[in-house]
Lab assay of single mutants.
Amino acid sequence: TRRLSELRVIDLRAELKKRNLDTGGNKSVLMERLKKAVKEEGQD
């Protein structure tokens, strides 16, 4: 898996959309949101 920081905004939005998460905001907001989601998934 590529590091989140290497993803483009369009990629971040696609990942968030797959998880039914909000896709609004700038790159840093999107990255934080996705990071949190990935962390929570890992705790399942």
Rank of each mutant, 00 (worst) to 15 (best):
T1L: 13
T1A: 11
R2E: 15
R2N: 14
R2P: 05
R2H: 15
R2T: 13
R3P: 12
R3W: 09
R3M: 08
R3N: 14
L4I: 15
L4K: 04
S5E: 14
S5D: 13
S5L: 07
S5Y: 02
S5Q: 07
E6T: 13
E6C: 07
E6M: 03
L7W: 12
L7C: 01
R8F: 01
R8G: 14
R8T: 15
R8M: 08
V9C: 03
V9F: 05
I10C: 15
I10S: 15
I10A: 15
I10Q: 15
I10V: 14
D11Q: 03
D11N: 00
L12W: 01
L12E: 03
L12H: 03
L12M: 11
L12D: 01
L12N: 04
A14T: 03
A14D: 05
L16V: 03
L16T: 05
L16R: 01
L16F: 00
L16M: 04
K17C: 08
K18R: 13
K18S: 10
R19P: 01
R19F: 01
R19L: 10
R19A: 05
N20Q: 14
N20A: 07
N20I: 02
L21E: 06
L21W: 01
L21S: 02
L21Q: 08
L21I: 03
D22M: 03
D22H: 06
D22Q: 07
T23V: 10
T23I: 05
T23D: 04
T23P: 07
G24R: 15
G24H: 12
G25E: 05
G25A: 02
G25T: 02
N26P: 13
N26Q: 02
N26W: 00
N26S: 14
K27L: 07
K27H: 03
S28Y: 06
S28W: 09
S28Q: 15
V29P: 02
V29M: 14
L30F: 00
L30R: 06
M31I: 07
M31F: 04
M31V: 10
E32L: 05
R33M: 02
R33L: 01
R33Q: 02
R33C: 02
R33E: 08
R33N: 02
L34M: 07
L34K: 10
K35E: 15
K35C: 08
K35T: 10
K36C: 08
K36Q: 12
K36N: 09
K36D: 12
K36V: 11
K36H: 13
A37T: 05
V38F: 07
V38K: 14
V38M: 14
K39S: 13
E40V: 09
E40L: 09
E41W: 00
E41M: 03
G42K: 15
G42W: 06
G42I: 03
Q43D: 04
Q43K: 11
Q43F: 02
Q43H: 11
D44P: 14
